[in-house]
C-alpha cells in the first residue's frame, strides 16, 4: 500500500512535474471547452492551422526580443481574421483559404529562424512542446489565459450557441453573427497558442478535438459535453504525465496518446452510442 502511495506521489515531489501538471491540466480543460465548438462546426482543420500559423508570430517575437506567446497569439488571431476575410470576399473556399494562409505563416516563421545565426532551441520547444521545462511565469500566464477564455465562454454562451447552431436565424434575430464567428476563431487561436508549450504545434489540435469528441459520445447536451470534455482532457494530462515519468517518454506524446486511448474506450463502450453497445442491441436481421 505504501509502495502504491509512493508510486502515485513520487512524480509530484519534483517541482518541474508540478509546474507541468498545472499548465497541462489548465490547457487541456479549456481546450476541450473550446474544442466542443470546433468539432460541432467541423473546424478541426482550422484547429490544426492556427497553431502552425502562430509559429510565424513566435519567430518575429523571438527576433524582436518580445513575448513569444503574445507574438504567437497575434499571428494566430490575424490569420483567423484573414481566413474569414478572404473566404468571404473572394470566391475561394474556406478550407482553401486556411491551407494557403497557415502554411504561409508557418513558412514565414521558418524563413525568419533560418536567418538567425545562433542556435535557437527555445523555438523547438514550441514545435514539439516542452511541458516539463515550463517556468512558473508561463504556468500562471497559461492558467490565467485559460480562466479568461472560460469566463468569456460563460458570459457569451447564449450568443455563441445560437450563432454556432443556426447562423441565419441568429442574424435574423439581430445578433452580431460575424463578430461572434470571428470571436470564436480568436478564442480557438488563443487556446491553441497557450497549448503550445504543453504539447507543441504539431499535437495541440489533439487537445482541442479528442477530449471533446470523447465527451460527445457520452453526453446529450452541449454544457455537459464541455464539462465532460474538460474532465477527460485534464485526466489525459494527469495520466499522460505519469506515463511520461515512469516510462521516460515524451510527455506531450503521452498526454495526446492517453486522450486518444480515452476516445477509443468511449467509441467502444459508450452507452447507446458505443460500437459494442450498438452491436448488442441491434436486432438480428431476418434471413
Amino acid at each position: 500500500m505504501a509502495e502504491f502511495i509512493d508510486f502515485l506521489g513520487d512524480p509530484w515531489t519534483l517541482e518541474f512535474m508540478r509546474r507541468g501538471l498545472i499548465a497541462a491540466v489548465a490547457v487541456s480543460a479549456i481546450a476541450a471547452v473550446i474544442g466542443s465548438f470546433v468539432i460541432l462546426k467541423g473546424m478541426a482543420f482550422i484547429g490544426d492551422a492556427l497553431p502552425h500559423a502562430s509559429f510565424g508570430g513566435i519567430a518575429v517575437a523571438f527576433v524582436l526580443g518580445g513575448n513569444l506567446y503574445l507574438g504567437g497569439a497575434i499571428a494566430a488571431v490575424l490569420t483567423a481574421i484573414l481566413i474569414g476575410f478572404i473566404s468571404r470576399r473572394a470566391s475561394i473556399k474556406y478550407d482553401t483559404a486556411i491551407g494557403i494562409l497557415f502554411v504561409g505563416a508557418f513558412a514565414a516563421g521558418i524563413l525568419i529562424i533560418s536567418r538567425q545565426t545562433n542556435y535557437t532551441p527555445d523555438l523547438f520547444s514550441f514545435v514539439f512542446g516542452n511541458v516539463l521545462g515550463i517556468s512558473w511565469t508561463d504556468v500562471w500566464t497559461t492558467t490565467i489565459a485559460a480562466a479568461v477564455i472560460l469566463l468569456l465562454v460563460v458570459l457569451f454562451y447564449k450568443e455563441i450557441l445560437f450563432v454556432a447552431y443556426d447562423p441565419s436565424m441568429a442574424a435574423a434575430s439581430g445578433l452580431p453573427v460575424a463578430a461572434a464567428q470571428y470571436g470564436l476563431l480568436a478564442l480557438i487561436g488563443v487556446t491553441t497558442v497557450i497549448g503550445l508549450q504543453t504539447v507543441g504545434i504539431v499535437l495541440v489540435v489533439a487537445l482541442l478535438i479528442t477530449p471533446a469528441a470523447t465527451a460527445q459520445l457520452l453526453t446529450r447536451r452541449l454544457p455537459p459535453m464541455m464539462a465532460v470534455g474538460a474532465v477527460v482532457g485534464a485526466l489525459s494530462s494527469f495520466v499522460g504525465l505519469y506515463i511520461a515519468y515512469y516510462a521516460n517518454v515524451s510527455p506531450s506524446a503521452a498526454i495526446v496518446l492517453t486522450a486518444t486511448g480515452f476516445f477509443f474506450l468511449a467509441f467502444l463502450f459508450a452507452p447507446r452510442r458505443g460500437l459494442l453497445w450498438q452491436r448488442r442491441f441491434v436486432p438480428a436481421k431476418p434471413a
Partner: peptide
C-alpha cells in the same frame, strides 16, 4: 437542410433561442 440536426441541443433549447432577440 440549413439546420444542423445533429447539434447537441434539446427541443426546449432550440425553442428558447426564440427568446434571445
Amino acid at each position: 437542410e440549413q439546420v444542423d440536426w445533429s447539434f447537441p441541443v434539446t427541443v426546449l433549447d432550440v425553442v428558447l433561442m426564440g427568446r434571445y432577440s
